[in-house]
Amino acid sequence: MFISNAYANAAGTQAGGETMQLIFMLVVFGLIFYFMIFRPQSKRVKEHKSLMESISKGDEVLTNGGVLGKVTKISAENDYVLLAINESTEITIKKDYITAVLPKGSIQSL
């Protein structure tokens, strides 16, 4: 009665178009989130897990805290590692806190 038919029809078709644009934008943001955040993080987690599995007795490692040491023992549960920092000092750390395995002789060169 107060709104002409042509104006009412145009508003109805425009609302459908806005819904499609909204869905398209959500899909685009989801893809950006996946490729820029989720995928690289899962790749890093997979690399760290393979690093932890490859640690063996005699490896020289670097921890998150910056401690360099040589692996002298791996616990039976395989969660903890005994590191020799020097000839008389050994510490026990959780295997998850090892950041990198260093090449042999790295500690001696320092």
Rank of each mutant, 00 (worst) to 15 (best):
E90L: 00
S56D: 10
T89K: 10
V28E: 04
K73I: 00
V71D: 03
T13W: 13
P103F: 04
P40N: 11
T99I: 04
N64H: 13
S42M: 13
E47F: 07
T63A: 04
A11H: 11
F2C: 10
S109M: 04
V101G: 02
L68T: 06
A10G: 07
T13C: 10
P103H: 05
E90T: 09
G66T: 07
K95G: 01
D79Y: 02
G69T: 11
Q14F: 08
Q108N: 14
T13Q: 14
A100H: 09
Y97E: 14
I32F: 03
I23H: 06
D59M: 05
K70Y: 01
D59E: 01
E60Q: 02
E53L: 05
E60N: 10
K46E: 06
L31G: 14
R44G: 07
S75E: 01
S106D: 02
L31K: 09
Y7D: 15
I32H: 02
K73Y: 00
H48V: 07
T63F: 03
T19M: 14
A10L: 11
T63C: 13
G66F: 06
I93H: 02
I93A: 04
G69F: 00
L110R: 11
L83K: 00
D79L: 03
F24P: 04
S42G: 07
T63H: 08
K46Y: 09
D79M: 00
G17M: 15
F24I: 12
I98L: 00
M36A: 15
K95Y: 03
V81A: 02
N9S: 13
Y7F: 13
G69A: 05
L62D: 05
D59N: 15
K46R: 13
G17P: 01
H48N: 08
Q14G: 12
F33N: 08
I55K: 00
V67R: 05
N64K: 09
G65H: 13
F2Q: 13
A10E: 15
V45H: 05
V71Y: 00
S50T: 14
G65Y: 12
I107P: 03
S75G: 07
Y34E: 09
M36P: 11
M52N: 00
F29G: 10
F24M: 14
E77P: 03
F24D: 12
Q41I: 09
K73H: 13
E87T: 14
T99Q: 05
E90F: 04
V28R: 03
E77G: 07
H48I: 13
T92F: 08
G105P: 04
E87P: 05
L82H: 05
M20N: 14
G12M: 12
Q41S: 08
I85K: 00
L62Q: 01
M25T: 07
K70T: 00
G17R: 11
F29A: 11
L31R: 05
P103D: 06
